[in-house]
Nucleic acid binder design. Sequence first.
DNA 1: ACGAGGATGCTCT
DNA 2: GAGCATCCTCGTC
Length: 183
Amino acid sequence: MSDLPTLLSGDVVAAARGLLGRRLRSELDGVVCEVMLTEVEAYGGAEDPASHGFAGRTARNASMFRAAGTLYVYRSYGIHWCLNAVTGVVGEPAAVLLRAGRPVRGEEHMRRRRGRADHLCDGPGKLAQALGVTGAQDGTSLLEGVVRLVGEPPVRRRIVAGPRVGISRAAERPWRFRLVEPL
DNA sequence: ACGAGGATGCTCT
DNA sequence: GAGCATCCTCGTC
């Protein structure tokens, strides 16, 4: 029995911090890949001007309004895909952007998908590409879908907070969180 | 290590 | 038509 439903159903900032150190696994094209999440950002709903959900429901952000644990995938700058874990209650858009991870399984497939040997998933677009995720997986479940969170909560973590990256509105909020190593 | 500039296409005003 | 929740390459230091 996982604690993820409880974690993701709550406050988006708490959910973001709680996702650090967890593992994200994709099973696509007959290949299993897995990363440990090392960097995330919280995006609120109607009260967060930087959030895709701020201006209300649209075709793009419909997944944000669904149940906690839904995977929200959107296209960034016309080129890249970005992954989010939807949080909170149904009808209130909030999500955690999954910005970066560290390969723990299937690294050779990540290299093939990325077309290079380094910088496999140290950015949101790179993470999606390394895991083989596209808009085809938008709206699927992170609890039981082909792209899912797995494993137990990490035991010890050291987290630093900072401003979110690449936004112009509400840029002062320290809602970007990353894992500091060692532990 | 770091910064500038271009690519690229969808979303919403 | 403006604005992106980005990445890559190539230039400097």
